[in-house]
Design a protein around this nucleic acid. Structure first.
Lengths: 207, 207
DNA sequence: GATTTAAACTTAACACTGTTAAGAATGATC
DNA sequence: GATCATTCTTAACAGTGTTAAGTTTAAATC
C-alpha cells in the first residue's frame, strides 16, 4: 500500500536544489516534488476535477503561479503526475510478471483500484501531453513489460497473432480496470442475494 | 454511418413545443435538441474539452444561459448527450447481437471508433451524472443487452461464473474500445514493416 | 569576496468559464 | 382577453489558467 506522499519520486531530470533553509526559504527547495505530492493528495482525496493549478498551489502553500517555472502549465504538471503513475504501475507489475498473465493482470487491476484518480489521469488524453518525453518513456516502459509477458507465454507464433494476443490481454485487463474504477462492475457483484467481492469477480474474469 | 445531426433524437420526456415561427421566433421551438446537436458537433469536430456551456450556446446561436431552462447546468446537458450516446450504442448493438459475441464485440468497438468523443463522454463519470433517470435507464438498457447475450451463449452455468464471464467479455470489449479511441493500439499495428488495420487487430483480439 | 547572471517565486492583471438573479418576450390556460 | 408559466436575454459574480512585470534568492564569474 503506497501512500500519496512517499511514492512521489525525486524531481526527475532537473537536479534538485539543496534547500538551505528547509521549508521557510523564499526558494522552496523541492517545490516540484511538493507540488506533485499536493496534486496526488487532492486527486485521491477529492477528485480529478479538483486538480486545478490554483488548488494545487494553494494546497502546497505557495502562490498561484509558483508551478509555472517547474511545469510550464497545468498540462505539464498533470503529465508529470501521470508519469509518476506509470512508474508506480511498473513497480506494481514487476514482482507479478514472472508469475504469469493472471498474476500480472490482477496486479494491473489492483493498482487501478488502489489509485483510482491517478489511474484515471494516466489515460485522460486531453488532460496530459503524451509527447512529453518523460511521460512517453515511462508509458513505453510499462508497455514493454506487457510485450515481454506475452512473449514469454507460449511457443512461437506469428507476429500478427502476437499483436492480437497482446491487444486481447491488454484490452481485457485495462477494460476491467476502467470499469472497476468507475464502479460499473458493482451491479455484477450480487446475484440472488449472495455477494461476491470485486477482487473475486476480477480474478474470475481473468481466467 | 450516423452523422451528428440526424442521430440526435427528439427531446425525450419533455414535450417539444411546436414552433410557430421556425428558426426566428423568440421561442426557439426545439432548442433542447438543437443544443444537443451543437454539443455533439463540437464534441466530434473538436474535442471533449471544447464542450463548454458558452461554446455550445454560441454554436447554436443563442445566449450564454439559454441551456439552463432545459438542462439545469452543464452536467445536465452532458448527461443528456451521454444518454443519446447509450441509445445510439444500443441501436448499433441490436443487429449484431443475434450473430454472437464476436459480432457484438466488433459492433461495440466500431461504435466507439466512429464516435470517439461521444464514447469517451459516456464514461466520464465526473462530467456526467449517472443518477439522472434518463441516463440511468439508457445505460441499463445497454447493460441488459450484454446480459442477454451472455445468457444465450452456452449451456447452464452457475450465476457466479456467469458474472465472471460477463465481466470478462465486457471488460475485454470495453478495454479494446477505450485503447483504440485513445490511439494506444496504433503501436501494435506495425511489425517488421508490415501493416495491419485497426479493424483487423481488433477482430483478431476478439477471438 | 564582490558583482553579475539566472532562476524561483510573488503580485497584478487579462480573458475566459459556469452559475445566479432579474427582467423581457412569448405560448398556454382559464 | 387576462393571467400564468415558460423560454430566453442581459448583467453580474466568483472562479479558472495564463501572461507580464517585478522581487528575492542562489549560482556563476571575475
Amino acid at each position: 500500500m503506497s501512500s500519496a506522499s512517499d511514492s512521489v519520486r525525486a524531481s526527475g531530470r532537473r537536479p534538485v536544489t539543496p534547500r538551505a533553509h528547509p521549508g521557510k526559504a523564499y526558494h522552496h527547495g523541492d517545490l516540484r516534488a511538493a507540488l506533485l505530492c499536493s496534486a496526488r493528495t487532492l486527486l485521491e482525496e477529492q477528485s480529478i476535477a479538483a486538480l486545478g493549478l490554483r488548488a494545487i498551489t494553494r494546497h502546497a502553500g505557495v502562490s498561484q503561479t509558483a508551478a509555472i517555472p517547474h511545469f510550464g502549465n497545468l498540462t505539464g504538471l498533470l503529465s508529470a503526475l501521470a508519469t509518476v503513475g506509470y512508474e508506480d504501475l511498473a513497480d506494481a507489475l514487476t514482482p507479478a510478471l514472472p508469475q504469469g498473465a493472471h498474476a500480472a493482470g490482477m496486479a494491473y487491476v489492483r493498482f487501478a483500484i488502489r489509485n483510482p484518480g491517478l489511474f484515471t489521469l494516466m489515460f485522460r488524453s486531453d488532460a496530459i501531453d503524451r509527447k512529453e518525453p518523460d511521460l512517453a518513456a515511462a508509458s513505453a516502459q510499462t508497455s514493454a513489460m506487457l510485450t515481454r509477458l506475452i512473449g514469454s507465454l507460449e511457443g512461437p507464433r506469428s507476429s500478427q497473432t502476437r499483436a492480437g494476443t497482446r491487444a486481447a490481454l491488454w484490452g481485457k485487463v485495462h477494460g476491467l480496470a476502467v470499469l472497476a474504477v468507475d464502479g460499473l462492475l458493482e451491479p455484477l457483484l450480487t446475484f440472488d442475494g449472495e455477494e461476491m467481492s470485486l477482487d473475486e469477480l476480477i480474478a474470475d474474469a481473468l481466467r
